[in-house]
Design a protein around this nucleic acid. Structure first.
Lengths: 165, 165
DNA sequence: CAATTCCTGACTTACTTTGACCAATAAGAG
DNA sequence: CTCTTATTGGTCAAAGTAAGTCAGGAATTG
């Protein structure tokens, strides 16, 4: 069995115990498996991607960590679909807006979230001197990042009024 | 857990008791946590800056102290302030992230929205071949667009744990 | 044997902690 | 009242800790 597979298993076992998230120390894990620390990154980047239903956050420096969060199973397929089929490496403004609207109508994201996402990929926001092609690449990256971030969290509560002040 | 985080927590707890302000003795606190006094300054300068919504005043010499005051402003003032002063025409990733976190703590945006905004201006999302300066200009434009979009909507419903940590 | 996947190490970036030295203030001495 | 001196807090740079990136070599697979 490959080391990567062993490490993958190990992490998934941790995951099973902690249910929806687990935290690990990259260097400790590397030492435990007698491998280079970057091996851990390899495993994470090949087996714990959003497509696989995971999202990673980390922190460097003293007390650093790597946190792996499981994306709810019910959302993985749809997320994968959006990330790969609908968005891909490049997307124009109009199609991006449509996606935001659809996600809102399906209740995947709230009205506010849809507005925020739309705004982030709007012509206005990206009105900076770079070629249109590049803007579309940017749109794709930004939109995907936002979707992954929203999938990582608990589902959107249908937003109603109320707030501070 | 990191010492800095522990100290941050400690101060925030003091803060909660005393409501909007608290006063501490730098050396006492350092001794209490068995650390260098300058560690306290580190915590203050990384977690209690005006950007984080706090203002610090201090006095040296006998009977010296450090006083931490929470800044509060109306929603409209805050939005104007954020748009013009804090973000401006260009902003780096870290500062953008702090703004998202602070808006969340203030309850202006939800946890999910904070994650989404953070993701939109993250290094990952903007990881495209353009010079760093331009990325910061983009960050500013994107973040401002999102803020304006969220302000146009009804206030965020606190979607989870809510409140500042 | 070509393509893919796996694994490593050198280099980079990010965050934390400490310590040596500096600056301000209060309190007491002259 | 002025001049020390003890008592605080501030600054900054260096060392410490930990994760990320990337190019390339090794192993596996078709």
């Amino acid at each position: 069995m490959r080391l990567s597979d062993t490490i993958e298993e190990f992490i998934k076992t941790m995951m099973r115990e902690d249910q929806e998230a687990c935290e690990l120390k990259r260097n400790e894990l590397a030492e435990y498996f007698h491998c280079a620390p970057s091996q851990i990154n390899y495993v994470l980047s090949t087996r714990f991607t959003p497509d696989h239903g995971y999202s990673i956050t980390s922190q460097r420096g003293g007390g650093g960590y790597v946190r792996i969060v499981r994306i709810q199973a019910s959302r993985v397929d749809r997320l994968t679909y959006y990330l790969n089929e609908r968005i891909g490496d490049s997307i124009d403004e109009q199609r991006a807006q449509i996606i935001c609207r659809q996600l809102k109508e399906k209740g995947t994201i709230s009205d506010r979230e849809a507005e925020i996402m739309s705004a982030a990929v709007s012509r206005g926001a990206l009105g900076v001197p770079v070629p249109e092609d590049l803007k579309n690449v940017l749109r794709a990256r930004i939109l995907k990042s936002m979707l992954i971030a929203s999938a990582r969290q608990r589902p959107a509560a249908p937003d109603s009024g109320a707030g501070e002040e």
